[in-house]
Design a protein around this nucleic acid. Structure first.
Lengths: 249, 249
DNA sequence: CACTTGCCTTAACTTGTGTTATGTTGACTC
DNA sequence: GAGTCAACATAACACAAGTTAAGGCAAGTG
C-alpha cells in the first residue's frame, strides 16, 4: 500500500483494475493537465446546478454525492474513496444534477473536463476503462435503490458497510477485516435513508450481536461471512473482476 | 407522432434529442445490424448473471429493470419507454447485474453488442449521444435513491408519475395531460419500494384530492402544476435540454 | 353460463421506524 | 479548567406503512 501515490496514479491504478493499458496510454493518463489541492472536510467540489468544467480525482480522503428534496431533506447517493473520479457522472452533461462534497479533508486533483474528454476520445482503451467505471457506478446506484427500497434497517446498514469494505479492499486500502469509516451517524443515516437515532439503535444492535466491533469510527468485522449474510451482500454488482470480453476492436 | 417508426428510428430520435447528428452518422445508426421481434409481456430480455451479447432497443411497449434481494423481494430500478435502449448499462460490463423484463408486449430490435461498440468507437458524435444517454440514466438512478430514501409514499408515487409523464412527453409519446401507465399496482409498489396495499391507498388519496383521474390504467393529471408540487418534481435531473457545451473537439 | 384468474379494493390490526427530548462524552478553546 | 460544541446515546411516545385477510369485478375460458 503506497499512500504516497498522486491522485492521478490512484486513478490509473483504478483504471488498470478494469483493463490493462499499454505504456503509452498509462503515460497519457499521468500526463493529464491538472492541479492538485488539499481541500477541507465538507468543501463542495460540485454544486447542483453548476456547469461542470473540471473533474476531480480523489487522491486521499473521502467524499460523497448528495441530493436534496424540495424541503431540504438530504439523501447521500454515493460514497467515494481514494482513486474515485468524482465527476465522470457529469462528463457529457451540461449541468450538475447533484452536489459532490468532501467527507473528510483530502487531496484532490482537478482535471479540466475538456482534457479528459479529449483523452478518452483519442485512446480507445482508456475510453473503455473510463466507460466501464462509469457503468459500475451506475450499477452501484441501482443496488442502492434496492437497498433503500427493499431492505430493513439492519440489513441496509450492514450492506452499506460491506460495500464500503469491499471497495476499500479492491483499491488496496484495507489491511483485512477492519477499516475506518470516517462518517458521522447522521451522514450514515442520510446514506441509507434512515434517521440518525435509528442508525444509532441499529449499529448498537449489530454490535450487541457481535457482528461488528466499533472503536470511535473504526469498524471491524469479526466475521466477514456473517456480515455478508446479515447484509445480504453479494459483491457481483461491484464488477470487481477485470473486464475481458468488452475488449474494444 | 409516428408510431410506425422502427425501433432504430426511435433510438435515433432519442439520440438527436441529445446531439444533432450529421446525415452520415444518422445513416450509420440506422444501418446497425439487428433483428426486430415482437416479445410478450414479462419476457426476460436480460437475466442477472447473463453475459450480455445484444442490446435491445424498445420500439413499442414498455419494459423495466429489476433486482432481487437475497430472499426474493423485488425492487424495480427503472422503467423504460419506447425509444429507450435496454442494455447500454451493460455495454462494457462482463456480466449483467440485474434483469430486464418486458412490462407489456412490444417490439424490440436486438443489436449485437459488438456492432454497437464499434459504432460508438468510430463516430464521436454518436458516442457523445450514447454516453450522454447513459449518464442521464445514471442521473435517474440517483433521483430514485432520493425518492425511495427520503420521500413519503404520497410524494414518492406522485414523483414517479411525473417522471413517467415527462419522459413520455419528451419522446413525443404523450398528447398532453393524460397517458397510459400500463403497470399493475404491485409493479408500481416494487418501483417505489412500498407494498401494493399502500400503493392502492395512496393512489386513492391522490384521486380523492383531485390530483389524478384514473380510468383503468389511464391516468390524467387535471393540473400538472399541482402534481409537480405534490410530487416534489423538478425535471432537471432528466437533462431534457439539448446538450451543447459537451460538444466533442 | 359457471368457473377461474388476475387485479383492484377495503378493513383491522401490527410494527418498524420516526419524532422529540434529554443526557453523556470527549475534544477543543480562551 | 470552565465553557463550548459536535457527536453519540437513550428513552418515551407517535405514526406511516406493513401485514393479513377477505371481498369485488372484469376478462377470459371451456
Amino acid at each position: 500500500m503506497t499512500f504516497a501515490d498522486t491522485p492521478l496514479q490512484m486513478l490509473l491504478r483504478r483504471l488498470e483494475l478494469i483493463v490493462d493499458l499499454p505504456e503509452e496510454d498509462r503515460q497519457a493518463v499521468l500526463a493529464l493537465p491538472h492541479r492538485t489541492r488539499t481541500v477541507e472536510a465538507s468543501t463542495y467540489l460540485t454544486r447542483e446546478g453548476d456547469v461542470p468544467t473540471v473533474c476531480g480525482v480523489l487522491g486521499t480522503g473521502f467524499a460523497y454525492r448528495q441530493k436534496l428534496t424540495g424541503d431540504g431533506v438530504r439523501q447521500i447517493v454515493a460514497l467515494h474513496i481514494p482513486g474515485d473520479a468524482l465527476d465522470m457522472q457529469h462528463l457529457f452533461l451540461d449541468m450538475a444534477d447533484h452536489s459532490v462534497q468532501m467527507l473528510t479533508r483530502g487531496e484532490v486533483a482537478f482535471i479540466p473536463r475538456k482534457d479528459l474528454q479529449e483523452l478518452i476520445n483519442a485512446r480507445p482503451l482508456v475510453r473503455q476503462a473510463v466507460l466501464s467505471s462509469i457503468l459500475v457506478e451506475g450499477s452501484i446506484f441501482r443496488e442502492w435503490v434496492l437497498n433503500v427500497g427493499r431492505r430493513d434497517a439492519r440489513t441496509r446498514l450492514a450492506h452499506l458497510l460491506c460495500e464500503f469494505a469491499s471497495r476499500m479492499e479492491a483499491q488496496g486500502l484495507s489491511d483485512g477485516e477492519g477499516f475506518e469509516l470516517p462518517i458521522t451517524q447522521e451522514q450514515l443515516a442520510d446514506a441509507v435513508g434512515l434517521t440518525p437515532v435509528h442508525v444509532n439503535r441499529t449499529l448498537k444492535s449489530l454490535e450487541a450481536d457481535g457482528l461488528i466491533t466499533r472503536n470511535k469510527r473504526n469498524i471491524v468485522f469479526p466475521s466477514w461471512e456473517r456480515m455478508r449474510d446479515v447484509g445480504d451482500f453479494n459483491p457481483r454488482y461491484l464488477h470487481l473482476d477485470r473486464q475481458l470480453s468488452a475488449q474494444v476492436g
